[in-house]
Nucleic acid binder design. Structure first.
Lengths: 154, 154
DNA sequence: ACCACGGTTGACGTTTACGTCAGAGGAACT
DNA sequence: AGTTCCTCTGACGTAAACGTCAACCGTGGT
């Protein structure tokens, strides 16, 4: 019966790398409905769980509206058999859609891996004979490295 | 040396269920550059292949800009070693991103399947005691079936 | 009492990926 | 020649998902 842990908007944002604006937006869309302490929003553990589902839904490309429907599937106090039946229908539609998408992704990954292989081989066999000039190569590489701010191991 | 097959804009649109507007838009963005017969666009077999890649990229949630970069990876006449190296980098980034996405999708599918199971059981154990009324149930079901045009096995 | 700080509510701006006319041009049938 | 198509080029509109900015509020510290 310990008071369940709660979160401020900023805590959740830091944890999941999103902005307060986004959370309020999800709230506008009915995907979240945190409690209030005066004006301030207080997110419960359940709210946090919902947020995680929302973000995963986004990562797999679902529009917020669809995510909302799916979230409702999990919290069905329900309104009857017909409701449940159509929910099941939507659920299955989403499953088959995601399975198609999985296939697309597998194909894309396969092709990209082939592409990567070819690029590697090209790099390997690409002797100085294909280069503009050793000096140019050197300079181009330098420019590249200078231009890239992040991702550097330095 | 038979003249390679070509396609009008409408033919491609019918084949891939998209609109002429979309194809012209992709052209604006540099993802396609079909030949012309006067004003009219003439799509080659290669253009068609690119379009398929574009559409698959879209299905996995890539923005058109990214798709453009990936397409360029396949057609590298190239500008040197540095170019090829950074291309390889981008390629690998995309691969790992897609692999993460694959995991998300697998998780989402798993959860949805659990949800579907629960819904099925609820439907099974949901005796008339939870129903508004047997008559209402019957009527609601009828309405449902009438409202759904496709997917019906009838 | 004053002020910084984090949070809140509008309201308008922005990007992406097209949809939707409006107006015109060439091919083809009648 | 007239009409019917299909297509083309702008140009403007739109939905989704926030970003950004202004102005306000309550609370803790000094």
């Amino acid at each position: 019966m310990s008071a369940e842990r709660t979160y401020t908007i900023r805590q959740l944002c830091q944890e999941f790398a999103c902005t307060p604006r986004a959370l309020r937006f999800y709230e506008d869309k009915g995907l979240l409905s945190p409690a209030r302490a005066g004006l301030n929003r207080i997110y419960s553990y359940k709210d946090r769980a919902r947020l995680m589902l929302i973000l995963r839904g986004k990562r797999v490309g679902l529009p917020l509206a669809e995510i909302g429907e799916l979230l409702d599937l999990y919290e069905l106090d329900d309104g009857g058999v017909a409701q449940t039946a159509t929910s099941l229908g939507k659920c299955r539609e989403r499953i088959t859609a995601l399975e198609r998408q999985r296939i697309d992704i597998d194909n894309a990954i396969a092709e990209l891996k082939l592409g990567a292989l070819e690029l590697e081989q090209r790099l390997a066999t690409m002797g100085p004979e294909h280069l503009p000039k050793a000096a140019d190569y050197d300079q181009a590489l330098r420019l590249r490295l200078d231009g890239v701010e992040h991702e550097g191991s330095h």
